[in-house]
Measured scan of single mutants.
Amino acid sequence: MFKRLMMVALLVIAPLSAATAADQTNPYKLMDEAAQKTFDRLKNEQPQIRANPDYLRTIVDQELLPYVQVKYAGALVLGQYYKSATPAQREAYFAAFREYLKQAYGQALAMYHGQTYQIAPEQPLGDKTIVPIRVTIIDPNGRPPVRLDFQWRKNSQTGNWQAYDMIAEGVSMITTKQNEWGTLLRTKGIDGLTAQLKSISQQKITLEEKK
Rank of each mutant, 00 (worst) to 15 (best):
Y100G: 05
N155Y: 04
I200D: 04
Y55S: 09
A85L: 04
R98F: 02
G74Y: 11
I167M: 01
P27H: 10
D139E: 09
Y105S: 00
T187W: 13
Y72S: 12
L11R: 08
S156P: 04
F2L: 02
I13N: 15
R143P: 06
T194G: 11
P15G: 10
V8Y: 06
Q62P: 06
L101I: 06
F150M: 14
L197Q: 02
P140S: 09
D191T: 04
P145M: 09
Q196E: 00
A168K: 01
N155H: 11
Q118I: 06
V8T: 02
P27S: 07
K188W: 10
K71L: 11
T175L: 13
M31G: 09
E180I: 05
R41I: 15
R147T: 01
Y164T: 11
I59Q: 15
F39M: 06
Q89R: 13
V77Y: 07
R90L: 05
E169C: 02
Y72R: 01
A22H: 00
Y81T: 06
M7F: 05
D127V: 01
A95I: 06
D23T: 02
V135N: 12
T86R: 13
F150I: 12
L109M: 02
E209P: 12
D165Q: 14
F97H: 03
Y55V: 03
V60C: 13
W152G: 05
Y100V: 08
N44M: 06
K154H: 01
Q203V: 02
K204Q: 08
D54N: 00
K3N: 01
R90V: 12
R50F: 12
L78N: 04
G114F: 15
F39N: 11
D40A: 01
Y82D: 12
K71H: 12
G79Q: 01
T86L: 03
A73P: 09
P124N: 12
Y93R: 06
L125Q: 07
L65C: 12
K204L: 15
D191A: 08
R153K: 12
I133H: 06
P132D: 15
E45D: 12
Q24S: 01
L30M: 07
K154V: 08
A120L: 07
Y100S: 03
L185G: 13
Q178K: 12
L30S: 05
D191E: 01
M166I: 05
G192Q: 07
K154R: 10
L101R: 14
E208V: 06
D54Q: 15
Q24Y: 14
Y112A: 14
A163V: 08
R134N: 01
F97T: 04
I190V: 07
L197S: 03
R57H: 03
R41S: 10
M1N: 00
D165E: 02
A9L: 01
L185Q: 10
K71C: 01
V135Y: 07
L185A: 12
D149P: 06
T194D: 00
P53D: 00
Y67I: 02
P66T: 06
E45N: 00
V77Q: 12
T176W: 07
S84G: 04
K198L: 09
V77A: 05
K43L: 04
Y164W: 12
R147I: 02
V146R: 06
Q80S: 04
V77F: 11
K37S: 05
E91D: 02
F94R: 07
D23F: 02
A51K: 00
Q115H: 08
F150Y: 06
H113T: 09
Q103W: 13
A168E: 15
P144A: 08
K204P: 09
P47K: 09
D165C: 04
A34Y: 05
L5T: 08
A163D: 14
A120D: 07
A22Y: 01
K29M: 11
A9V: 12
G142F: 14
L10V: 04
E122C: 04
S199L: 10
Q162V: 14
L65F: 04
G126K: 13
E63H: 02
S199D: 01
I119N: 06
A168N: 11
Q36L: 11
E180A: 10
R147W: 08
L184I: 12
T86I: 09
Q162T: 13
F97Y: 01
R4Q: 00
R98I: 14
Q202I: 13
G192V: 12
N160W: 03
Y82H: 11
E33Y: 03
D127C: 15
L30C: 04
Q203E: 06
T176P: 06
S172I: 10
G74W: 02
T187I: 09
G114K: 00
A110T: 03
K204N: 03
M7T: 01
L125I: 08
N155D: 08
A18K: 14
D32V: 03
I119T: 10
V171F: 12
V68F: 02
Y93Q: 14
I190L: 06
T136D: 01
A163H: 02
L76I: 14
Q69W: 02
R153D: 01
L101F: 03
I190D: 02
R57V: 02
N141S: 14
L109G: 10
E169Y: 08
G192W: 07
P121R: 02
S17G: 10
T38Q: 06
A163Q: 14
K29E: 03
A163L: 11
A19R: 14
G79R: 11
T175N: 06
L5E: 01
I174H: 02
R186W: 08
K29H: 01
D23W: 03
M173D: 13
A85Y: 15
A73H: 03
D61S: 04
P145H: 14
A85F: 06
S199V: 03
G126A: 15
E169W: 08
A110L: 04
K177D: 05
A92W: 06
Y93P: 06
D40E: 14
D23G: 07
V171L: 05
P144T: 08
S199A: 09
L148H: 14
T194A: 13
Q118C: 02
Q202E: 09
W161K: 12
L5F: 05
D127F: 13
M111A: 12
S17L: 03
G114S: 11
L11W: 01
D149I: 00
E33Q: 15
Y72G: 08
Y112C: 07
S172Y: 02
A22N: 13
A108K: 15
P66F: 01
T38P: 04
Q162R: 02
T136G: 05
F94I: 00
K3F: 08
D61L: 11
A51T: 00
P53N: 00
R186L: 10
L125F: 05
A163I: 15
T25A: 13
K128R: 03
V60N: 13
P145L: 07
Q196I: 15
G106H: 01
A18V: 02
D54Y: 10
R147Q: 15
Q24A: 10
M1K: 00
V77S: 06
I174G: 07
I200Y: 01
A19V: 10
F39Q: 12
M6T: 02
K177L: 13
L64K: 15
G106I: 14
I200P: 08
T158Q: 15
P132Q: 13
Q24V: 02
K3A: 03
P27G: 04
R57E: 05
